[in-house]
Amino acid sequence: MDAKIENIPSCTIAYMRQTGPYGTTNVNVQLMEKFKCWVKANHLFTDQSILLGIAQDNPAFVAPENCRYDACLVVPDDYRVNADGVKLGNIRGGRYAVFKVTHTVEAVQRAWGEVFLQLENEGFTLDETRPILERYTVELVNNHTCEICIPIK
């Protein structure tokens, strides 16, 4: 799996949050589907839309029932949310190692098991001050892929 290095700009996001274990249930998938319905109902989905999935907590240090997952949409800086359950936030930009992955449960789980070792082997250090992103664009989804974006120093 090859990584490309990309400078992802800082951005404003609209998001919905789920708290609970990662990966063992489909609640995060359900959250993303609910969020996509909100995005479409509010006419925010275009060919240039960028959806993000953000696991906010490291389950090695945070109890599974307290792990936070955000389903996000990059929005204009002046966007105002007028919906219950949708909040605004910001992502600080910087250098990321970007891995393109087939968008299946198996491929994404395999990628999560490999990306950190690959980064270490290539001499990169994880920047723990910024979130790891799962990025989805229309083009990626149409090609049954997504990107795992790991912040690096």
Rank of each mutant, 00 (worst) to 15 (best):
A63P: 03
N7A: 10
Q18H: 10
D47E: 12
D84F: 06
A111N: 01
P131L: 00
E6W: 04
W38C: 13
T19C: 06
K87D: 12
K34L: 13
Y69V: 03
M16I: 12
V86M: 12
I50L: 08
E65W: 05
N58S: 05
C149E: 09
R110I: 01
N82P: 02
V86W: 00
A63I: 01
T145F: 10
L31N: 06
D78M: 04
L73D: 05
V62G: 03
C11P: 10
D47R: 11
C11H: 08
G20C: 07
E65H: 12
G113R: 02
D70F: 10
A83V: 06
L133Y: 05
D47W: 05
F45I: 11
L126I: 13
P9K: 08
E33R: 10
Y79D: 02
A107S: 15
A83Q: 08
R135D: 08
N28G: 12
F61A: 01
N58A: 07
R130L: 01
V86D: 11
D70N: 15
H43L: 07
N58H: 06
C146G: 11
R17T: 15
V98E: 13
E147G: 04
V98Y: 14
N28E: 14
N143K: 15
V141R: 09
P9G: 03
M1A: 04
T125W: 06
D78R: 05
N142W: 03
F45A: 14
L117H: 06
V115G: 03
E106D: 14
C146S: 13
T125Q: 11
V62P: 04
Y22F: 09
R68Y: 13
C149G: 09
N66M: 09
P151A: 02
T25Q: 13
I152H: 06
A14Q: 07
T104I: 01
F99V: 02
A71C: 06
E147M: 03
F35R: 10
L117P: 02
R110T: 12
N42I: 01
Y96C: 12
G53R: 02
V74D: 08
V138T: 10
Q48P: 07
L88V: 12
G94N: 09
G53K: 01
K36R: 14
D2H: 05
Q18L: 04
T145N: 11
A97H: 11
L51A: 13
D127K: 10
I152M: 12
M1R: 02
E134N: 15
R68S: 14
R135V: 06
N121A: 11
T12W: 00
T46H: 05
S10P: 04
V81Y: 00
I13D: 04
K87R: 14
V74Q: 14
I5S: 09
P151E: 03
K36F: 06
G123W: 08
E147A: 03
N66I: 02
T145R: 09
D127T: 00
T125K: 13
A41C: 05
A111S: 07
L31I: 05
K153R: 11
L119W: 09
E139P: 07
V141D: 09
G89R: 15
V29W: 10
V27R: 14
M16Y: 02
N42A: 04
